[in-house]
């Protein structure tokens, strides 16, 4: 915690400074509220209208959590299969890269057309966004095991199964977590985008409504909440990583402490 304060005060100070400049500019140049609201206005709206929009926040959080779980599980599954079956890897890997070149914003309306306005098309959007960073980094981790350790396992007579569970999987965990961290933030974006397309609840809906009625203050409230959720989600994964990968987290802490 102390460490967090020691390292975190600089960006926090910059952020506060930015808010002060923003607030002053709005007052000095007399900017209309619908054009750019002052941070203090946004804050007031955020507090006062909480009871009106909180259902949107919870709906989005629910969607993010389900989407992230489905997305990461499919990413882990795809990476593992591609790793264990070389033929699959050679034939599918380029296609997976290609899948990321399809703009989600174009694909999403099509998905709604095919699967309706329910949960399914939204989950597909989040999964598509989430699974890629996880699959790619986990696959990289699984493929790059230490040669000496692999040699030891072979000499010791390890089966393919033992090779996977005792060597490849644990050594790929750091890579998996770097994928999870990227996907955690992506999944928030994915959820909001999927709600733009058609939903009756959620921050995406709230944002569209606010923006079409020129309520810039509400748009900013939504933006700040989204940023906050992303940050929270990211920190959750970092916390999980520290719990799971103790052999490296402590190593990092040691080197930080000595430098």
């Amino acid at each position: 915690m102390l460490n967090l304060i020691r390292q975190g005060w600089r960006p926090l100070a910059v952020l506060i400074l930015l808010f002060i400049i923003w607030e002053l500019s709005v007052v000095v140049f007399d900017v209309p509220k619908w054009f750019l609201p002052a941070p203090s206005d946004i804050f007031t709206v955020g507090i006062n209208e909480w009871t009106e929009y909180n259902q949107h926040v919870f709906a989005t959080i629910e969607l993010i959590i389900i989407g992230f779980i489905v997305g990461s599980l499919s990413g882990i599954l795809v990476a593992t299969l591609l790793h264990l079956i070389p033929v699959l890897r050679q034939s599918m890997y380029p296609l997976i890269i290609l899948s990321q070149n399809i703009p989600i914003i174009v694909l999403a309306p099509l998905l709604v057309g095919w699967f309706g306005f329910g949960m399914l098309p939204k989950l597909i959007v989040i999964t598509l966004v989430c699974f890629f960073p996880i699959a790619i980094s986990l696959l990289g981790g699984l493929q790059q095991t230490d040669r000496d350790l692999r040699h030891y396992m072979l000499m010791a007579g390890a089966t393919k199964r033992q090779m996977f569970w005792k060597l490849e999987w644990p050594s790929a965990l750091p890579s998996l977590f770097s994928g999870l961290k990227i996907s955690a933030t992506y999944s928030v974006m994915g959820a909001v985008i999927s709600e733009w397309l058609g939903a009756n609840k959620g921050l995406g809906v709230y944002m569209t409504l606010a923006s079409s009625s020129f309520r810039a203050d509400r748009v900013f409230v939504a933006i700040f909440i989204i940023v906050f959720i992303s940050l929270l989600f990211f920190m959750l994964i970092v916390w999980l990583e520290k719990r799971v990968i103790r052999w490296q987290a402590s190593e990092k802490r040691n080197t930080n402490g000595s430098s």
Partner: peptide
């Protein structure tokens, strides 16, 4: 027939995620 002899490699080749106890039990 892999696994018929026991092997100590040139580099210690300890598994970083295993404690000393779990490492010596790996074989």
């Amino acid at each position: 027939q892999p696994g018929s002899v026991s092997y100590t490699p040139q580099s210690p080749s300890l598994f970083p995620w295993r404690s000393v106890l779990d490492n010596v039990l790996l074989g």
